[in-house]
């Protein structure tokens, strides 16, 4: 079974986000780039499955849409345990163009499972996985919180209202995964870091595609309002303040 893991190259989650003048573009100056946390968990699960079922999972390939500056992130994925990487040489513009680029690249590949993080921690569109499955014309399963291979078939658990649902799926399929798919993201070992440079990182040309959405402007979240301390002697004021000032009850 060949597993592809879609990797989004995103700013470190502790980055203080700033915008360029006009608020139409994020200012990425000085930003540290990481593997999108959901994608990192998906990759971790793929590596765990390959380690525990080497006969079933034969190859893990990570794939991204990005320019050359996304390569350190891809090499980190290789150092963590992916076997090969593909960078589609195009700037990701919106969820649709990203899905189109990946779908076009995957048409030339042999794949059984494609894992996509449920969202990316930068633009949060929540839609690449679903669009990708449609473009590839393969089944997709959303909200996947566990993945196992049983009798060479993928068995997934997904979160449903008030409980969990277990289902098996045919392949090829796209699985849209969320937290729980793996618990602790894989940290690359020294050996992994040293072998990463010898693993293939293929660059393929992107196709010409137009975004379906356009960013009009960004707005920073409102500043957190200051904390109001209440004297323990006057705790009876609390319900009224929560009701009238904070308006939360």
């Amino acid at each position: 079974m060949n597993i592809f893991v879609c990797i989004s190259n995103v700013p470190d989650t502790t980055t203080r986000i700033k915008f360029k003048p006009g608020n139409k573009e994020v200012d990425f100056t000085g930003v540290q780039w990481i593997i999108n946390p959901w994608d990192e968990l998906a990759l971790t699960r793929a590596i765990e499955l390959k380690e525990s079922n080497p006969a079933d999972v034969t190859k893990i390939t990570v794939i991204t849409v990005g320019k050359a500056d996304a390569e350190p992130t891809m090499r980190k994925a290789l150092a963590s345990g992916a076997d090969e990487a593909i960078r589609i040489d195009a700037a990701p513009e919106d969820a649709y163009t990203t899905a189109v680029q990946i779908a076009e690249a995957l048409k030339n590949e042999s794949f059984h499972l494609v894992l996509c993080g449920v969202e990316s921690s930068d633009y949060n569109s929540w839609s690449v996985g679903g669009m990708l499955a449609e473009l590839l014309d393969v089944p997709s399963v959303s909200a996947v919180s566990s993945l196992n291979i049983e009798n060479s078939k993928p068995v997934v658990t997904r979160e449903v209202d008030g409980g969990k649902q277990t289902l098996s799926t045919s392949t090829p399929a796209v699985l849209i995964v969320q937290k729980g798919i793996a618990i602790i993201p894989r940290i690359p070992s020294m050996r992994g870091i040293m072998t990463a440079r010898t693993k293939p990182l293929k660059v393929v040309q992107g196709v010409s595609t137009e975004p379906l959405t356009k960013i009009v402007d960004f707005q920073a979240p409102p500043q957190k309002s200051s904390c109001k301390m209440i004297d323990p002697e006057h705790l009876d004021e609390l319900p009224e303040l929560l009701h009238k000032e904070a308006r939360v009850i």
Binding site: P72, R75, K76, A79, I184, P185, I187, P188, S189, M190, I193, M194, A196, R197
Partner: peptide, 19 residues
């Protein structure tokens, strides 16, 4: 180098997540 940065990140991740 890219390797040096990866080692720094690996150590940071282990320290901040586990230690």
């Amino acid at each position: 180098t890219e390797e040096q940065l990866m080692i720094q990140q690996a150590a940071r991740d282990y320290a901040q997540r586990e230690l």
